[in-house]
Amino acid sequence: MNDEKIAQYGDELYNAWHACRTVAPLLQREPEITIDDAYRIQLRMVECRVQAGERIVGKKIGVTSKPVQDFLGVYQPDFGQLTSGMIYQEGETIDLGKLIQPKAEAELAFVLKRDLIGPGITAMDVISATDYVAPCFEIVDSRITDWKIKIQDTVADNASCGVFVIGNAHGDPRKLDIALAGMVLEKNGELFSTSVGAAVQGSPANAVAWLANTLGALGIPLRAGEVILSGSQSALVPIVDGDELVCSIGGLGSCRVKFAGRSAV
């Protein structure tokens, strides 16, 4: 795909995000689009956000669990870029009015204290480079109409990033069994689902190593201080005005999030 088209779709997705509206799936319009093209579109979309004043604060990993991989017919994860405008603190209410068709996912977040530069990164390097891990919520959102996404659509749309909340419970990954740490997700006081770290690539640290290596091949380092959302351990949770979610990770602690307002769709 030529640079002109990449820029055109990147701008289109940025404008859709900015205006809180959806666009038709890109793959329907451009059947030849490759995953590499989609990442170039993503870079353009994120560049527009940076030019508008945001900073890159980290990365998210998506498509990490078997059910989602089966759904998309893709047997590797994808990634998107986290920007400063996506951050909510735990305790702040998330404004659904700024989102289009949001859904929540519960994950383990990593915050780095050292750079991770692939290729050649192992899960052990990830633990060594991690400052702390924390329970978190990623609120995914899609700029593609009705979430009718194929892998190229979601990659181009910055891996369907919306906003995210890192819990105040911080833990040292050296003291936590991150593969076997259980996750309990409650919605409005009732059990919604349970899971375990191993649901993400056998261990969330494996997903982060995959990310470092994939970015390394593209010449992009993971920097000290960056946040990495390692991939959903839960099913997608539908959310509406007034909902409250709590995710508890065994041996680590909880993250609580509240929602208010109405999303665009």
Binding site: M183, V196, G197, A198, G250, G251
Partner: peptide, 9 residues
Amino acid sequence: IDLRTLGVV
């Protein structure tokens, strides 16, 4: 231990 959040694989 926290008997509520034990993960199992």
